[in-house]
Design a protein around this nucleic acid. Structure first.
Length: 875
RNA sequence: GGGCGAUUAGCUCAGUUGGUUAGAGCUCCUGACUUACAUUCAGGCGGCCGAGGGUUCGAGUCCUUCAUCGCCCACCA
């Protein structure tokens, strides 16, 4: 067997295996009738994306389960890909153009799109490369993009089907408009932030009595240019008499009516509201109810248009300033209150969103939502942790129609054409040549593209070439589980469920795992603008990909609070694995490839520590498997960490340190190492793959090895408890040694207080034994407790306490300590016996609890007796 | 305003259906250069389990009220 290098060189090892897995297509998946499929689709990162901690966490989780299932014998497909991310991507290229002093309109749609595709070709794979560095075991040959040709086919097909079903309609609405991106945003895309603004109180004079006025309050004075009414609550006594009266809109001098509407809150502001139906969603509703005029005073870029009179051409915020100033001069401004309210911001560029009247395409969601609610209600789809079910339900039950048109160029174009001659609307998945009604060839395609999510919601089946039918689609759909962040339950998860049921007739996945948000140590979201983002790639180069993965998962209960030091735990653990392997490889020379751990553990002739570590190993194997199946990854890691480090390295490898000549010991160490590598592999693929390749030179890579076999009913209770006794014994001896700073070469005397008749033995422990103890656990070299009899210490299985004597011991102080202990134990004893004499307890508590309590009482009483003996012996 | 979650050691978190003396890791402190590993080893300190009330033989765990924090949704003229 080869040896391991002294240093764990993760940089080269990461790179080596990353390359190997790709060149050999280790993770390619095919429909295979002999195996059960296990499929995951990646939440497609934005094509503009660069790897951040959220991706790292998300993909590590997926990789753990997919590697685990692969080793468990499933035909695993992890489908990778990227999302075309409409606005984000368009932004990137628009920025490029801006540097050249051009806008997208300057270059024109076709040329602009061409540049976008060029950009995509050049830079669009960045995130994919980064995901590979993480160790993600995707089937990379299948990498898909939401604007692939076939994928576009799926998007169009879906649009047409919904259109023909009557679920797609066009309508005028106040939508969230980003004046910078020039596009509509869905409600989910408008991020509301609490903002310190102002509430302006403005006088609107009455037409018939210009000296009197009604005062309205507004946060956006510039919208007054489009006011077409003033509304008051019909039950508001202050204003009842005014209903139906006319007022004059200042600055514009338009005559507007005072109307009554229940919507108005009498408590807020002045109780009178200016109504701007074209610029506010509520006013829009009021406008419809009262049949008001809709006056749009703004250009799509946020500048005031010619309906704004002399403010024509000014930016909305510029106009606000001027309007306020002018009102002041006219003595129409009563006062300005500071007012905190939440303002929508574009989720892409953070520009303040403008509620804007425009014509958009919508999908009716209710009919799609119903079966999707049912699928979760009847348990076909499960959320982990379960509490997210409520969040999903809450949204689905109050679902609103989905605005799917976007006024940008990068995306799937809406497959709708308008006939210039007869105004017919044509929906078609093929580009139509003439109007089916009037045969005119003057057709114009709708300029808008679809919301990016309108393609992502098809991801689980469109990536498998739907609407084409093929073997892969049949075999791998529905997928198994989905891993994503809770933020996109509405955007994506819910919509995928609806699409899956609607178009495939089956749910898209059965389990949804929602992981936490990665935050910095102070609990803030990691973001570039805050400058608190930790770059996963930096961590990879500094600590290794395995360290990144292991540490992230270790912290992944709920939200993760991450700082750089947290990655040390993973780095240290990888290093530990490396060094333990190195030690074993240096010493194990006679290896039997068919060595059977199960049989060895059952053999009484095998030394206790060996039987113990085997039992621990099987216990851990079970725990790790169960935890993964149960989506409890950090728990799985704790079991691994505890076993490998605290049991295997700290105890077993120490115990066998001078027994390497024993072939059983060699084989056990190697076998346990090999199998541990297997169950560590999903968490830390690189270091385990490397060590495996050295131990098992010439064999298949670890990634496609099978998961270790479990054995049923290993009876290890006795082994575990004997070993525990031994560990306790050694630990207490060690403690005493360190407590009184006894040096190994000193002769000391100890009293061993035992439960045997001799009760108190004065035993001399010579320096060689102390030295042995100091060498950590060497007592256990002896195969059995009995055979260690001559060693004087291990003779006594029931040692309760050990008290050293001699010059080093302050007897008075020791006595005090023991007396305190006695008191404590006596208290425990009396409260316990009260409890055991309580009828209700005896009648109600389960038998085993009572037994335990009785045993505990006995032990305590025994302890008291022994402590008293110690006291008397000291005197 | 509606919903969800959290509160356990200085910090970050575990803690099964209520059942021994509430556990880890990090930090801090004390020791050890023991040839796989100082990215190490052996120890120690540190807890009225957010507050009050209730159910129970028994509550970190169940119920209730309150407090503080976080997240999501809606509204905010």
């Amino acid at each position: 067997m080869k040896e391991l290098s002294k240093r764990f060189d993760f940089i080269n090892i990461d790179e080596k295996w990353c390359k190997y897995w790709q060149e050999n297509n280790t993770f390619s998946a095919k429909a295979n009738p002999d195996k059960e499929p296990y499929t995951i689709v990646i939440p497609p990162p934005n094509v503009t994306g660069i790897l951040h901690m959220g991706h790292a966490l998300n993909n590590t989780l997926q990789d753990i389960i997919i590697r685990y299932k692969r080793m468990k014998g499933f035909e695993t497909l992890w489908m990778p890909g990227t999302d075309h991310a409409g606005i984000a991507t368009q932004n990137v290229v628009e920025k490029q153009l801006a540097k050249e002093g051009k806008s997208r309109q300057d270059v024109g749609r076709d040329a602009f799109l061409k540049r976008l595709w060029e950009w995509k070709k050049e830079y669009g794979n960045t995130i994919i490369h980064q995901l590979k560095k993480l160790g993600s075991s995707c089937d990379w040959q299948r990498t898909r993009f939401t604007m692939d040709e076939g994928y576009s086919e799926a998007v169009k097909t879906v649009f047409i089907r919904l259109y023909e079903k009557g679920l797609i309609y066009q309508g005028e609405r106040i939508i969230n408009w980003c004046p910078r991106c020039h596009t509509a945003l869905s409600d989910e895309e408008a991020e509301h932030q609490e903002t310190q603004g102002h509430l302006y109180h403005i006088k609107y004079p009455y037409r018939d009595n210009p000296k009197e006025h009604i005062i309205v309050a507004t946060t956006r004075p510039e919208t007054m240019l489009g006011d077409t009414a003033i509304a008051v609550n019909p039950n508001d006594d202050r204003y009842k008499a005014l209903i139906g009266k006319k007022a004059i809109l200042p600055l514009i001098e338009r005559e507007i009516e005072i109307i009554a509407d229940e919507f108005v809150d009498t408590q807020f502001g002045t109780g009178a509201v200016k109504v701007t139906p074209a610029h506010d969603p509520n006013d829009f509703e009021i406008g419809k109810r009262h049949d008001l005029e809709f006056i749009n005073v703004m250009h799509p870029d946020g500048r005031i248009n010619k309906l704004g009179g002399k403010f024509n051409g000014l930016d909305r915020f510029e106009a606000r300033k001027l309007i306020v100033q002018e009102l002041k001069e006219l003595d129409l401004l009563v006062r300005i209150d500071t007012h905190s309210h939440s303002v929508g911001h574009c989720y892409r560029c953070s520009t303040v969103v403008e509620p804007y009247l425009s014509r958009q395409w919508f999908v009716k969601m209710k009919p799609l939502a119903e079966p999707a609610i049912e699928a979760v209600n009847n348990g076909k789809i499960k959320f982990h942790p379960q509490r997210w079910t409520k969040v999903y339900m809450n949204w689905m039950e109050n679902i609103r129609d989905w605005c799917i048109s976007r006024q940008i160029w990068w995306g799937h174009r809406i497959p709708i054409w308008y006939c210039q001659d007869c105004n017919e609307i044509i929906a078609s998945s093929q580009d139509p040549e003439k109007c089916p009604k009037c045969s005119s060839s003057k057709l114009r395609q709708d300029p808008d593209v679809m919301d990016t999510w309108f393609s992502s919601w098809l991801w689980p089946f469109a990536t498998l070439d739907w609407p084409q039918e093929n073997e892969d689609l049949k075999y791998f759909y529905p997928t198994s589980s989905l891993f994503t962040a809770p933020e996109i339950i509405f955007f994506w998860v819910a919509r995928m469920i609806m699409a899956g049921i609607e178009f495939m007739g089956d749910i898209p996945f059965s389990d949804v795992y929602l992981h936490g948000t990665v935050r910095d140590a102070k609990g803030r979201k990691m973001s570039k603008s805050l400058g608190n983002a930790l770059d996963p790639l930096e961590i990879i180069s500094e600590y290794g990909a395995d360290a990144l993965r292991f540490s992230l998962i270790m912290n992944s209960g709920q939200d993760l609070f991450i700082s750089k030091e947290k990655f040390e735990i993973g780095r240290n653990f990888a290093n530990k694995i490396w060094n333990a392997s190195r030690l074993i490889l240096m010493n194990a020379k006679e290896i039997d490839p068919d060595f059977d751990l199960g049989k060895t553990s059952a053999s009484e002739t095998v030394a206790l520590p060996t039987r113990w570590i085997i039992a621990k190993y099987f216990e851990t194997l079970k725990q790790v498997g169960a935890a993964i199946e149960d989506y409890k990854y950090s728990e799985a890691e704790s079991h691994i960490y505890e076993f490998f480090w605290n049991n295997f390295c700290d105890w077993y490898l120490e115990i066998i340190k001078d027994q390497w000549q024993d072939t059983t010991v060699q084989n056990v160490a190697v076998k346990i190492l090999e199998n541990s590598l297997k169950f560590i592999h999903p968490f830390m693929p690189f270091v385990t793959e490397e060590i495996w390749s050295i131990i098992k030179e010439g064999e298949d890579p670890l990634s496609i090895q099978s998961w270790p076999k479990d054995i049923e009913n290993i009876d290890s209770a006795k082994t575990l408890s004997s070993m525990q006794t031994l560990i306790d014994l050694i630990t207490s001896i060690r403690n005493i040694r360190s407590q009184w700073k006894i040096k190994p070469n000193e002769m000391i005397k100890c009293i061993l207080v035992t439960t045997s008749e001799e009760s108190i033995d004065l035993i001399e422990i010579n320096s060689s034994i102390i030295k042995a103890l100091a060498k950590a656990k060497s007592l256990m070299i002896s195969k059995e407790l009995e055979s260690a009899k001559n060693n004087a210490v291990a003779v006594v299985e029931n040692i309760k306490c050990i008290v050293p004597l001699g010059d080093l011991l302050d007897i008075e102080q020791e006595k005090k300590k023991i007396l305190a202990q006695i008191e404590q134990q006596q208290n425990a004893s009396s409260s316990l016996s009260t409890r055991l004499n309580n009828e209700k307890f005896v009648n109600n508590a389960p038998a085993e609890v009572i037994e335990k309590e009785k045993a505990r009482l006995e032990t305590i009483d025994l302890n008291i007796k022994e402590l008293k003996d110690v006291i008397s012996s000291l005197e």
